[in-house]
Design a protein around this nucleic acid. Structure first.
Lengths: 178, 178
DNA sequence: TCAAAACATTAACCTAGATTAAGGTTTTAA
DNA sequence: TTAAAACCTTAATCTAGGTTAATGTTTTGA
């Protein structure tokens, strides 16, 4: 069962490459279905995505084949791999819900509202602080408080992955809380 | 011995507040001595520091009184707490070497070369990826490769703190490597 | 509409790294 | 210049969270 899951993930991510399906709404704005992949690690991708509606996630797959969610991005958040624009990306990006997305090019960051970039910096800073200095329980409670709207929209598995723990560990934490 | 160290850290950080000692070089540019504290967690600080020479570090002190280094900043890197400018900071910032620093105000980020902000985003992304998906050994080797010039300039204790492990664990990792 | 896949939870056991302690070395500051 | 403080390492022990496995539930897609 575990093996099935891993093999499936690998298959989807690495072998069953298909062009992303999307509908053009207006210039630089597209609509994609849940599950569509916008970017794969190893590819060069020069896009910055701004979520108008829906929910995206970025994640890595580590050397053991395990996924770790890097960030969620809902309405008004930026989603991108911050690797320099001529180098291979490290992150996968896909849609957790049907989404509408505005697309910018790396190199044109000045066209993006500066505050959105600063928000991203602040979110990443908090992410590092949490990962370095808090227990699984503390990180979980912080997540519930900070992103209550995301909590409703994703599975326990996704939350665990974002927190940097296994779903089993998250179940344990929730059990201890109650 | 351990207790002495902890109490000393607390004393310095929380109780022995003194205005930072610095020399003004030119408008918005100062020179500070090693050990000088530029920012304490809990304070509101509206500055962004650009290191012209020397070495700064930012770190947090967690609920158990332990320090965790957030980032180092050497020549041409930005050092700041990315918390919004009207909220209390989370990071302490001090100088690990005598340093010359250019000072910007939060809210005037457009005066900072955009590439420096993008570099910061990339560094933070790599930091999160490392913390989430690599062992202590892998993080150590990545650090040696990515920041060889920093390795020469800081103690093992600082490197361990940056990697998110104890100095004892770092010693063990180095022992296993050799 | 219904089988297969994915998800959630509990439990038994395992391990990377934390904690504590101790001893030798280097740095600091009075 | 020298005592105190900080640093580095090794080793014994502990623990948060990982791994594996099993069971029941929900979702998905052909």
């Amino acid at each position: 069962m575990c093996l099935t899951r891993k093999v499936t993930a690998y298959f989807q991510r690495y072998f069953s490459y298909t062009e992303p399906l999307y509908t053009i709404i207006k210039p630089n704005e597209i609509k994609i279905k849940r599950g569509q992949v916008l970017q794969r690690a190893g590819e060069i991708n020069t896009k910055i995505y701004l979520v108008k509606s829906g929910l995206l996630r970025s994640y890595i797959i580590d050397s053991k084949g395990k996924e770790h969610i890097f960030l969620f991005a809902s309405e008004n958040w930026i989603m991108t791999d911050s690797t320099s624009r001529n180098l291979p990306c490290k992150l996968f990006i896909d849609a957790l819900e049907d989404s509408e997305i505005k697309i910018f090019e790396k190199g044109n960051e000045e066209k993006i509202e500066l505050q959105k970039i600063l928000n991203r910096l602040e979110a990443l800073q908090n992410r590092v602080i949490m990962l370095m200095s808090s227990t699984a329980l503390e990180r979980y409670e912080h997540f519930l408080k900070t992103y209550p709207e995301i909590v409703q929209r994703v599975s326990q598995r996704m939350i665990a992955s974002y927190l940097g723990i296994t779903p089993e560990a998250l179940s344990k934490v929730k059990g201890r809380k109650a």
